[in-house]
Amino acid sequence: MLTGKQRTEQLVVLAVIGALALNYPLLSLFAGSGLLFGIPLLYFYLFALWGGLIAFAGFVLEGKATQETETTGTSPSEGGKDNA
């Protein structure tokens, strides 16, 4: 079971990894010209990484053990319907 804290940690690590991979110096490894499958290497790298980040974030938040723990504190119901 994934606890809220674990999830938070996973997301932070994901963001840090993303920030590192999307910046100098890692980025410079892919900065040259050149085509991969007919697509510029740099763009291929950026979009693949981008897609990977999205997939992982989705996996962490929508994975099996999700509809659980921290929804206990969902917003107070008085949110907007007091005057409805």
Partner: peptide
């Protein structure tokens, strides 16, 4: 896309756009 990028790569000015330069 392969055709597009391939043709752009032949123009030096456009090839620059495909790298970080």
């Amino acid at each position: 896309p392969a055709d597009l990028f391939g043709r752009a790569a032949e123009v030096p000015k456009l090839a620059r756009l495909m790298s970080f330069e």
